[in-house]
Nucleic acid binder design. Structure first.
Lengths: 113, 113
DNA sequence: TTCATACGACACCAAATGGTATTATAACGG
DNA sequence: CCGTTATAATACCATTTGGTGTCGTATGAA
């Protein structure tokens, strides 16, 4: 089993996939609708969507013959949580905010990868 | 020229590189010292360090024959900034905090990749 | 000077990645 | 039923990636 953030970081590493996430942040879209936004083939987009799904960054539901892709932002939170460990090093103000959150939110994961 | 977050996300995609960042968060280390923490060869670690440097996640200085690697957390901030666009979708509380930050911090980048 | 040490630079390899093209399958509309 | 549409699945290709091994260079110590 791979860690949650591994799937997320892997999916986020490709610029096309990050653009797909931006598009899905405005509305949920079928594969064909995502394809309209890019110059690559449907096959390539499909592979990206599978990787985004494996990374838990999108969820998919079937509607008839359509496959509707929806942003699943909780998956991105795992990457943010990992990164925010370093926030103390770049922004004291953000660190204070992080502390405020942590005091209310006890369920913090470790960073042992 | 590739975007700042592309270099960061690419570097963050590998679990070994994320572990290297965790180690460097405790202290700066030479290549040999990083190697001690892993089972792979020095050549592999060197490549990882180059990618981390290209992603602006570490900085390097020469000291005699040693090459000292130091965490450069500002580079990670570019990835966090990109991701926090989505924070509104997963946590209203964090969104409020983000708004509080943005009201003091006007220099926000776009997400056009 | 000589030797061990810390890197740098290659060449090389297997596997993963991003992409295409082609061929199916399945559902909706008339 | 038939044609069209939306997607799935597969084979294939070029490049990148993560890794090793080897050789070279440079610095510090004896």
């Amino acid at each position: 089993m791979i860690s949650a953030e591994q799937g997320a970081f892997r999916a986020l590493a490709d610029p096309t996939r990050r653009q797909i996430l931006m598009h899905l942040s405005t509305r949920e879209m079928t594969i064909a609708q995502v394809c309209e936004k890019f110059e690559v083939t449907r096959g390539a987009i499909k592979k990206h969507l599978v990787i985004l799904e494996e990374g838990n960054l999108i969820s998919v539901r079937r509607a008839g013959r359509e496959r509707i892709n929806r942003l699943h932002p909780q998956g991105m939170k795992s990457a943010v949580d990992w990164l925010q460990y370093f926030s103390r090093f770049w922004d004291d103000k953000l660190t204070n905010l992080e502390i405020a959150i942590n005091s209310e939110n006890k369920s913090k994961e470790s960073h042992n990868d």
